[in-house]
Design a protein around this nucleic acid. Structure first.
Lengths: 169, 169
DNA sequence: AGACATAGGTTGCAAAATGCAACTTAAAAT
DNA sequence: ATTTTAAGTTGCATTTTGCAACCTATGTCT
């Protein structure tokens, strides 16, 4: 995977692709959300190759998406824990699972997200405006941020015309 | 990538990993959201290898995430368009971009999402309960759905204890 | 009509990533 | 003292990616 043309820029979707756009990473994070903390448990639950798991965990730790600590009581044991950053990914995970359940699993998904206290199903996540109103795809646009380079700004200008049509689809 | 142990089940996160958990796929979808429709434009904008692009587009078409149609006016031209399914992915894309901007790009992201009409920044997406109240990670639990197999149910039972601690963590 | 250009691929080959099994090292249990 | 356990690493076969060149059908130019 070279990908360096696009991915060195600070386009957030490009950056996030370096992480979850690799096999297994998202599943490793899911396992962490389910409470898995140990190397051997990740391996067993996922069936991932140990060397690949090793690489993934290292990267996630590097990116501060997992914290790696040795147990005090048993110094063989290493614990991988979610961080503030990875916990903050939950809305995206929920959104992905909901979307996948609807469009990839034919509505028959084996897992669902519920409110812990009440057990009620969690409604689909949505994009909302500042006023809380739910926005549709056609109401949303991508725009260059303050740190966009000239190339990216040009990129968005080229896209501007087509986008409304596409997203309105 | 074998991954078949986990991924044959209809766990939605596992399924979605087959799609966006591969290099380039998410970026291809982003390009489509930006209005890119043609093979050569995907290649040029992303710098992706043509053979890989070819494979990715085929898979996305297979999954009904892109529609492939030949232009009537110029029969050389093929158009790849977003479908209802891929348009429905927008909240996730926005969430990923927001999360990445915050945690991977150090708050200095080159792109942002805005309301098309007003130009106002879109607030972070959130998980909400049925009543619209914003939920934190610790308020949310994964549970087996109606189509979960016994293995998965056992999996969740094993996870149940650890989860509250982790997610609250 | 003939020559050239363009769009959307495919093919072949080198480099990188993955899958699998066996091996290693440090600490704990017996 | 020996065995077991946790967390890796190593070596090797297979698969995927990156890159450049080639191919085919259609459209454009003269």
């Amino acid at each position: 995977m070279t990908q360096n043309n696009v991915f060195k820029c600070n386009c957030p979707l490009a950056r996030v692709t370096e992480v979850i756009g690799e096999p297994w990473t998202l599943m490793v994070l899911r396992e962490a959300f389910l409470g898995t903390r140990h190397f051997n448990d990740f391996e067993r639950e996922l069936g991932i190759a140990r060397n690949v798991l090793s690489v993934r965990l290292k990267k996630l730790v590097d990116l501060d998406l997992l914290e790696r600590l040795r147990s005090e009581s048993d110094k063989r044991v290493v614990e991988y824990r979610l961080t503030a950053a990875s916990r903050d990914l939950l809305p995206v995970l929920v959104g992905l699972a909901q979307w996948s359940g609807k469009w990839l699993c034919d509505g028959r998904s084996a897992t669902r997200f519920i409110e812990r206290e009440t057990g009620r199903e969690i409604p689909p996540i949505a994009v909302r405006g500042i006023d809380g109103r739910e926005l549709r795809a056609r109401d949303v646009a991508m725009a260059p941020g303050p740190d966009a380079d000239p190339d990216l700004i040009a990129r968005f200008e080229r896209a501007a015309g087509a986008a409304s049509e596409v997203q309105g689809g």
